[in-house]
Design a protein around this nucleic acid. Structure first.
Lengths: 183, 183
DNA sequence: ATAAAATTGCCGAATGGACGGTGAATAATG
DNA sequence: CATTATTCACCGTCCATTCGGCAATTTTAT
């Protein structure tokens, strides 16, 4: 109980989402439970459920937040360069923080029982993909890069073998080169 | 209840695994529960747990089975060609049956709470990757193909946008070409 | 301005269902 | 008979969701 013991915060949602992230990072993707989130956010279970009427809504909120951050990162790529979106995607995973991995796993796990949870992600990626493909004549070439980037994501997410940090670096260089060679 | 009403099969494990697959395919990844599997396999819950002492073991069994099939597919690639393993991986997803997607999702979901469940997969892929990389001088080039293939897997698994069947086909052609150009 | 009324944000106990797992008894097998 | 395979009846836990109530805040009425 902090300073705001009796003070009513206008919006506890960000605190709740932050708490969920913290739990995912500290205890793993499977530990995101309403109780746990409530404790972490210094809130009651009812309080959490007031802001997110269902657990699904909470997960959806997390995904939303991640997508927003994703958009920000894309926006931070210099305007003038070709293949902006594609570059953004690549740089995003280069800089990706480890925190998001457990979070992604949590969302993935939930999506197993409820595939439509990923709809916002699909929508976002559909837009990105359109932009990427319309940026070049060599659509298959661009698509290969997109797929490789996605591969990198899941490789990291699931801890699949990557051939060592050394190779990983060279692969990223290679992908950068491939992007530059797109027409 | 089929012909084998009162006949005791020597080994119910395959039937159980098959039941799990059926459920995953018919009702989704989230519906694989011990009770459900028992019903589907026409067995009691205890019977299932006799063969797989824990749910984790059941999932591990499913993963095992999938990896075995994976190895078979790899083995069916003509001996003489270069980059055998890599070609195998590519052809595997070209022919992949939809059944396995829900199954993979189920395993993925479980891995969220228990990452070590994926250890056998990691081991398998580590071996494959070694073989792939030692087949060529252009390790980054090969790795890009590996990643793209992995990207294809997850794209399909999660129903992410793929730019249409048309592009998909051309991408696969492109990947085949890239493999051929590896030295 | 101020009392009354309504709304907002939250609490926390209770509910109920789903699910993994156990163990003793029983049937089949060789 | 001994071992193996399976049933049946429970148990306990976890966990999302419900719900009635309460204090602070805002709105409405007087």
């Amino acid at each position: 109980m902090t300073i705001q013991s009796k003070m009513q915060a206008k919006n506890a949602s960000p605190r709740i989402l932050g708490a969920a992230r913290a739990i995912a990072h500290r205890e793993g993707a499977g530990k995101i439970t309403i109780d746990a989130v409530a404790r972490e956010a210094d809130l009651s279970k009812g309080g959490v459920l007031y802001n997110f009427p269902t657990k699904r809504a909470l997960l959806a909120g997390l995904l939303d937040e991640m997508l927003a951050e994703h958009r920000e990162r894309l926006a931070s790529v210099p305007e003038d360069r070709r293949s902006r979106t594609l570059r953004g995607h690549l740089e995003a995973i280069v800089q990706a923080r480890a925190v998001d991995d457990d979070l992604s796993m949590a969302i993935l796990a939930a999506a197993a029982s409820d595939p439509r949870l990923l709809d916002p992600l699909r929508a976002e990626l559909t837009g990105d993909l359109e932009r990427i493909l319309s940026d070049t004549q060599d659509t298959p070439g661009a698509m290969v890069v997109v797929l490789a980037i996605q591969g990198l994501r899941f490789q990291k997410l699931l801890g699949l073998p990557d051939g060592g940090a050394d190779l990983r670096g060279r692969v990223i260089e290679q992908l950068r080169a491939m992007i530059n060679e797109l027409e």
